[in-house]
């Protein structure tokens, strides 16, 4: 198990270095921030001077080396426009995003698990058909549209919930539900089909032969086997929520990461975009690592493999 974790950890670090290089090159081919910083009165020499000041005149490998040595020392650079360290900007926005993403993910996963299992065990019943209908809706409707319609119904028409911004519990209801609705249906369908497969297996038949109660069969024998496949996806869905949050944060004016990365990309704020992408990437990689470890915990066959 320890060996397994160490190997996965090393793989994670390699992936992270790769992502850093990629984003570093990609932002640099997207345009020239010196042109954005300069005003109409600046001459070509002035613009060149801005590039020299920002260190953009050096070759890309050289810039990357400087960037890496800074990062290792905990310095992710300074926003070109806000003139603030990007860590400070991220530090202010990240908790807001997490406050949105974590509950959305938890609600969606728990909901998907429950509805998926209920759908599978009451196959083709009233509940199952309802569950299937929700799944189709959720996968067909775009997130921003659901968010806007929800705001229209619950905030504008019925005036039950606030339209936007941070605040008390009531401010969370709409953003969390709309963001969760983004990933719930896919997960639910996965749990349902995985559960149906497992319920059809011989060891479930044997569990019935043993005289166990149906509840025990479903929640002990079937569930643990049925969540192995959806678990990997659950991690990936968390990553999807980070991107999904960009849209939902914009709709609900939620001052999170999604909000500032949109600004950063539009302004070609290299350090800010780089920092956010690397941070999100390490987040996603970290989640995948956790998924793999929990995978090994649930499925003993992986735990005992000598990889």
């Amino acid at each position: 198990m320890v060996r397994f974790i160490i190997i996965r950890l090393l793989q994670t670090v390699v992936a992270l270095i790769g992502i850093a290089m990629l984003i570093f090159v990609l932002v640099r081919v997207s345009g020239d921030p010196a042109l954005m910083l300069a005003s109409a009165t600046h001459t070509a020499e002035d613009i060149q001077q801005i590039r020299v000041n920002l260190g953009l005149d050096k070759s890309i490998p050289e810039q990357f080396w400087i960037f890496v040595t800074d990062v290792v020392q905990g310095d992710l650079g300074e926003s070109l426009f806000k003139k603030k360290p990007v860590t400070e900007m991220i530090g202010a926005a990240l908790p807001n995003s997490l406050r949105l993403i974590v509950p959305s993910w938890a609600v969606a996963m728990l909901g998907a698990l429950l509805l998926g299992v209920l759908g599978a065990t009451r196959r083709d019943g009233f509940l199952d058909n309802g569950v299937k209908f929700i799944a189709i809706l959720g996968q067909a409707l775009p997130g921003f549209w659901v968010a806007i319609v929800a705001v229209f119904i619950f905030s504008v028409t019925w005036q039950l919930l606030p339209t936007s911004g941070l605040g008390g519990i009531d401010h969370y209801v709409l953003p969390v539900c709309t963001l969760g609705f983004f990933v719930l249906p896919g997960m639910m369908r996965l749990v349902r089909s995985s559960m149906l497969d497992v319920l059809d297996s011989e060891y479930i038949k044997l569990a019935r032969i043993k005289g166990l109660s149906e509840r025990r069969i479903i929640w002990k024998h079937a569930l643990r086997n049925a969540v192995i496949a959806p678990l990997t996806v659950a991690g990936m869905l968390f990553a999807m929520l980070i991107t999904g949050a960009v849209i939902i944060e914009t709709v609900f004016s939620w001052p999170g990461i999604g909000f500032i990365i949109v600004e950063g990309v539009l302004a070609r704020d290299f350090p800010l975009v780089q920092a956010i992408v690397i941070m999100v990437a390490s987040f996603v990689l970290g989640i995948n690592l956790l998924v793999d470890i929990s995978y090994a915990w649930i499925d003993p066959q992986i735990r005992y493999q000598r990889t």
Binding site: E202, K205, L206, R224, D299, P300
Partner: peptide, 15 residues
Amino acid sequence: SMILQDPMTSLNPVY
């Protein structure tokens, strides 16, 4: 009680 045909599939792999 009953014994099923295939011992490879009749035991729960995770317990």
